[in-house]
Structure formats: C-alpha cells, structure tokens
Nucleic acid binder design. Structure first.
Ligand SMILES: [Mn+2]
Ligand SMILES: [Mn+2]
Ligand SMILES: [Mn+2]
Ligand SMILES: [Mn+2]
Lengths: 220, 220
DNA sequence: AATATAATTTAGTTTCACCTAAAAAAATAT
DNA sequence: ATATTTTTTTAGGTGAAACTAAATTATATT
C-alpha cells in the first residue's frame, strides 16, 4: 500500500466530510470545498479511482470505497489528534489550531501517531467537539443536536460547533459560550430566531446564526 | 517575505550543513547530499539566487547570504526542536526521530514553534548532541572534539555524534555508549586505531569507526 | 418535447521539481 | 602547453497538480 500524496489525502478527507447517505458527491461540491476548480477535481477522481479508493463513473458522482473510507478516517484521526495536542499541550487557542493541523495531518509515520495518541491519553474528542477515530477507525457517537432544534426549557451542554471558522470560535470565546457549559433554553424569538439562554442565573441572548452552528447534548 | 517551499528549505539546510570556511559549495556535493542530480541543483541555485538567499556565479560555487543563512538556521532550529520533542515527550528513540523531523521541520507556523519551544523548556541541545538555535539564530558553542583525537588518560563525556544513521545510533545503544556517559581513554591501538575506554571500572573496546564518529568534551 | 441552465468533462497550458544526455568550463595530469 | 578527467551548465523532457476555455452531458423550465 503505497503512501498517498498530500493532495490525495486532502481529496479523501473532503469526500469524507461531504458524504451524505444515498447521494454521490458532485464535482462542484468537492471543488468548492477544496478551493480548486471542477476540472482539477475530475482529474484527481480518475486517479483515486484507479487506486481503488473510490468508485467513479463519469457524471455519476463519487463514493469512497472501504479502502478509501479507511484512509480518509486516518487523515481525520491525525488531524484531530494534532488539534488536541496543540490545545492541550501547547496551549494554543481552539481557533488557532485548524490551519496548523491541516499541515501536521500529512506527516507520514504510523509510530509517531501511535506515540502521540498514547502521550495524549487516547483522547476521544477534539477541541471542537468532534470525535477522534481510533486506530481501527472506531469513534464514539456524539449524541448531539443543533441548538436551534432543541425544545424550550430543556437543559443542554455545549458539545461542539458546526462552523469551524476563527471568527465564529473567537465570538464564542467572547460571549463565554465554550464547550462544556450547561445552558437552559428560555426563549426563542419568532421574529429573528434568536435564542435566550440561562447560564448560572444570568441570561444570554444569541443570534440565529450562533444557535444554528452550536451543537448541544441534552442533560438530565 | 514569501514562504519557502519544502524543496527550497531543504536546499538551504543542505548548504548550511555543507558549509566550510573559505570554500564555495559545489554542485556535486549538494546533489550528493540531497540525493538529486547536479543539473537539478543548478536550477535551484538560480532560483534561490534570484530570491537573494545565496550568491551564485556560474562555476564559482555558492555561499548563503545573511538572509539565506538565517532561513537555513530556522529550518535547523525546527528540525532539532521536533527531534527533542519526539524523544523527550513521545519517547521515541534517538535513532527513530530524524526522518520524522525531516517532515515536521517544514510545518509553517511561527507561533507553533514558539509554543513548542516554550513547552519543551527552551532546550539547548538536541538528542544527538547538536545545538538548537534560538529564535534569533543564536546557539551555544559546543566545546567538543572527536574521540579519536583525544589524549590518553583523559576523562571525557560523550557529547554528540557525527554520524546520524540509525545503524550507528543503534550500535551505540547496544554498547551503552550514550550521550552523557563519562569515559577515560586508556589505550589506542596502532594497528587498527581501535580505542579502549574505561567506564565505571569496566573496559570497553571500540573500533576506529566508532571513535571517529563520537564527539566528546573534556571533563575536569 | 424543445430549450435553457447547470454540472461535468475534455483539451490545452502552466509551474515546480525533478530527470538524462550533451556541451562547456575548470581542474588535473602528462 | 596539451591532453585528459572532473565538474558544472544547458537543452530538452517528464509527471503531478493546478489552471482556463470550450465541449459535452444532465437537469430544469417552459
Ligand atoms: Mn480542524
Ligand atoms: Mn477540530
Ligand atoms: Mn536529524
Ligand atoms: Mn539531531
């Protein structure tokens, strides 16, 4: 099993992230996700298809094979382990780590990743609340839903973000709505879909945009 | 100051390692060091010369500029910091880290390296006894000389290796001649240049090849 | 069903970092 | 000083991964 190029790994990871049940992934969506052009995507899909990492038929959209899925998950594993390292050990902020992990995820060394995983204590969740696949690709199912879909007067714990941009993460830091915080949904405004939360007796109003990008898990 | 490519960084680092006072570095030497061909080297030298990282005149051999030297040292800094991390934190062995550091040294992020340096406690020496340049390029002068040049009956501390191959490092592990050990040079054989050392009352015989690749520093 | 629009593929270029083979220059030996 | 060898450069080419523009196929609209 010959090593993949950085570009190939990035395509596999993109396909993993773009996957939707019962839908082939389109060239446009991939190009958009990777900031390239559809023509470049077509070329790469042909290459990956020859390597049996995905099934590709002209105009049909693309699906990862078992092998391709495993490779993609491995890249995701490395990305999230590095993010965990950067936040937990090097004290970088959760909005600073993604771009660095985009580079680190391509370092080729199985022993490195095993040692890193051990050193970090086999973490299950990355700094943004995303699950970290283990060596075999298994990961915990994060039982979460979107903040904008939760019923009134339920208690919920912030468990992750859908939007990973620096701008959004910094905003959450500013309003102190970080992972682990427990909130109670008090009110949902019809007009602008904004939400009022209660956090330790205090009330916090968040916009629709924020609510839509926050993942929470219900609390007893 | 636009970022350098991996290849450009590797050339600069090679030039740093190949540098000899009062000698331009030749195309062949560089090609040999980088496992590429002289023709490829010539091309890259032209490019780096245009970027003012070195001075290049056809057939004259090449010398790093201030700017080029600083960039090279920065790559060396990153390489050695990562090696220190891999050994000190991840418990990899000193013969396993070089190839991984060859990849890690190219990760582009100043804040990452600053944080890593801080996390490691600003180490001054890498696992092979080589000095780690600081942010400004300063590094401690390691006051060492080759084991094969040391006078009889002097005490010396193993301080580094000239040969960085896995084979050599593993051999040193086997004979337990690792960095920090204090030895006394008891005998030097005329015939094969092998050396007899005394380590805690016990005698150890090492070959010429080993002696020539070991760096030591004198001890009171 | 015919047409318009959107998605995808093909064709032809570009840049980077490498290569081989041949030419040119420099260094060494006779 | 000339001839030989070694080093370095030039010329021409390759493969990977991108690009633009044009052609093709699929989907949506009338
Ligand atoms: Mn990320
Ligand atoms: Mn993440
Ligand atoms: Mn090294
Ligand atoms: Mn080293």
């Amino acid at each position: 099993m010959i090593a993949l190029t950085i570009s190939e790994e990035n395509y596999l990871k993109a396909l993993y992230h773009l996957y939707q049940p019962d839908e082939g992934i389109g060239t446009n969506a991939i190009a958009n996700h990777l900031n390239t052009k559809p023509a470049s995507v077509t070329e790469m899909l042909k290459k990956l298809s020859e390597k049996k990492l995905l099934t590709y038929e002209k105009y049909q959209g693309v699906i990862l094979t078992k092998k391709g899925y495993a490779s993609a998950l491995n890249v995701v594993r490395r990305h999230r382990l590095w993010e965990y390292f950067l936040v937990d050990k090097l004290n970088l902020k959760w909005d600073e780590v993604h771009d660095i992990a985009e580079q680190l995820e391509h370092i080729q060394s199985d022993v490195l990743i095993e040692k890193l995983d051990m050193y970090l204590g086999h973490p299950k969740i990355d700094p943004h609340g995303d699950p970290i696949p283990d060596k075999e690709g298994k990961m915990c199912i994060v039982n979460c839903c979107c903040m904008s879909e939760i019923k009134l007067n339920t208690k919920a714990k912030i468990s992750g973000v859908k939007n990973h941009t620096t701008a959004f993460l910094k905003h959450l830091d500013k309003i102190e709505l970080v992972i682990g915080k427990v909130v109670k949904i008090k009110e949902r405004n019809e007009f602008d879909q904004s939400v009022a939360l209660e956090i330790n007796k205090k009330v916090l109003h968040i916009s629709k945009d924020v609510a839509q990008n926050l993942l929470v898990e219900k609390v007893k």
